[in-house]
Structure formats: C-alpha cells, structure tokens
Design a protein around this nucleic acid. Structure first.
Lengths: 174, 174
DNA sequence: CTCGATGGTTTGAATACTAAACCTGCTGCT
DNA sequence: AGCAGCAGGTTTAGTATTCAAACCATCGAG
C-alpha cells in the first residue's frame, strides 16, 4: 500500500496516519506547539534536512493543519501557524509525550514539565470518557461498526482464544 | 538525523517517535488493540508487505511493546500480544482515531464507534488535567524545563510576535 | 556592488520499501 | 511414502525516499 492509498482507507486511524504518520511530521508538530513557526527555526531545532522540511510543511499546509502567513513584506517572509485543525492534534501530542515520559525517560527525570494555567499545577494528561468522566482503559472499551463502516477488514477480530486457522477452502467459500 | 539517533534525544516526544513513529507501526498497533495477534492476520488486514511486517514486529518486541508468545507446539507458532507498556499506548491510539473521526470522516459518518463498558454509553475520548480534571487546551498549558532537561534546542521559543532574526554574530557569541 | 538573512530547490549517493518468490517445520490425506 | 497445505518468516531485484551538500532568489544595509 502506498501513502496516497492510505487516506482512502475506511478507517479513521489510517486517515490520520496518512497526514501525521511519519517521524518528521510528528516532530514538526511538537515544535509547532512549542511556538516554533519559521523554516530556519524548525530546521535548526530538528536537524531535519531542508528538502524534507519543505516537503512536510507543504503537506501540512495542504491538509489545513498549518497555514502559511506572511510576517513581513520586502522581502516576503512566511511563518507557519497551527490552524484549529492543527490545534486539535494537541491530545495526540500530549499522549505521545506522556508515554515517553513514563516509558522512555532516563533516571534524571522528564525533560519537560507541563503546568495547567487553569489550576496552576504541574499535571499529567489523562484520557477519560466523555460520558462518565472515568479514565479509559483498553479492556473497558468495546468497538463496534459505526454509520461509516464499510470495509470488514477493519473490524475487530473475535478470537480471544488460540483459534484454529481457517482452511483455504473455507476462506474461498466465504 | 537517523532513526537510531532519535532515541538519544533529550525529548520524550522524539523518544516515543523513535518507537512508534512510522505509519506501519501505528497501523499495527491499531490492529493490536482490535485483538489481532498473528502474523498472517496483520499481513492480510493491513496490506503490508511481509518483510516490513516482520521488521516492525521485531522492533516492537525489542522495545517491549509486544511479546511473542507461542500458542502451539509442533510446529511452534507464535502470536504477538501487547505488554503493559504496549497497552499504555491506548491514549495515543484513541487520540489519533478521534482526530480522524472529527477531521477526516466522510459524510457517512465514522467507521467505528466506541462503547465504554463502565457507563454503557458510546463515547469520545477527552484529555483532561490529572490535577483538576478540566479538559486540556493548548493555550492553557505552559511548558517548562524538568529535572531531565538538557538540550536547549527542545525548550519552547518565546517569540510571540514577529521577532527580528538574530544576526549570525550574536548567535556565534551566545 | 557585495554580504548576510530567509526560505526555499537541485543534485547524486545512501537507505528503505515493494512485490513476488522461496524456505522451513510440521500435519494430515491418500 | 509422497504430496498439499498452513504459519511464519527470509531472499532478491527493482523502485521510491531520504540524506548531505551545494545552489538560487529576493531584498536591505553598508
């Protein structure tokens, strides 16, 4: 499967991954949330090569995750800013950072801390249920087809126990 | 910068991205949470090529995100299961799926719905502050160096307004 | 009229990915 | 005994991406 086919998949995860699913894009987005906005700053902070940076920024602009805004005339110079669609990536970024803080930190502790302006405390991000407010755990979540379901390849499997494989004949018949 | 250097970065996001930051790995993890566990099943559902699948599974096992468990002898056959470290990726996966549901769904609606067994309702994942429980928005979060901070390249910039660029001499001096 | 700042693009070599075929152990059928 | 089939890979050769380094364009300042 190629990149361009990925966005056609009947799966929200595949579609999101088609936009942000490579390492450079994710790191660019991290810096966006740290208020980095200019080509040269991205390039220096990330150690990304210039052609790739240009390519990824263009892609993010095409997807309306970033907008290119002129910040001066003569000569025209642009900066890249998160759109609302881009700002909505915040939970993804926070979840990724938090997992790294928990599972990949060295002994010295986490490199960055986050303060919540609302309550004034350093915090961890927690993912909760929109309906009851309880923290989500994978075993308490059941997945089922929604109105946009189509491709049965993306439905969950039912195999909870080591099931015997289906034979090729059965597969062909189904 | 190469992949192997990424995990040495003084940044939780970079370290996490070094583990899960490519499209195939993310899609494999999606399927893991849908209870897919076998090589052939991953391969068929994802449309991934076999060498890449083998490579990514090996990587995830090395990182202790998955474990390889034999589910039969003669001939020995293995399945791949999420470890606790892997299960902890759930918020990332949910955040990615949710963004796709909001920003990338077609008119027919979202492909999958999630039911929370605790309250019994279909829900959206919401990211909240661990201290006050309020939903997080990027503008209300302030980032500052933590105990493991080291590399100033990963601190946020302070430029809120179009700032004049620093001259090369100043840079060299600092 | 040359230098530096900014935001790119071009080039050729190194790396990664793809598709298709092949390999290994074992079972069960004939 | 011999062969087909299953599961989980590996090999190979061609294609696509990425890398590093250099180059280009625009404009202002000296």
């Amino acid at each position: 499967m190629r990149w361009n086919e990925l966005s056609d998949e009947n799966c929200s995860m595949a579609r999101t991954v088609s936009v942000i699913g490579d390492r450079w894009t994710l790191l660019i987005l991290r810096d966006c949330f740290l208020r980095v906005r200019r080509f040269e700053d991205f390039q220096e902070r990330l150690g990304i090569t210039r052609p790739i940076l240009a390519n990824r920024l263009k892609k993010l602009v095409n997807e309306f995750v970033l907008v290119k805004v002129p910040y001066q005339q003569r000569p025209v110079r642009y900066e890249y800013r998160l759109t609302q669609k881009g700002l909505d990536l915040f939970p993804i970024v926070m979840a990724i950072v938090h997992w790294g803080d928990i599972h990949m930190a060295d002994k010295k502790g986490r490199p960055l801390l986050h303060t919540h302006n609302v309550c004034g405390k350093d915090f961890d991000p927690v993912m909760v249920c929109s309906e009851c407010g309880e923290p989500l755990s994978p075993r308490q979540v059941h997945v089922h087809p929604g109105p946009g379901a189509k491709d049965p390849r993306h439905l969950p499997l039912d195999t909870d126990l080591p099931a015997p494989r289906r034979l090729a004949k059965e597969k062909a018949a189904s």
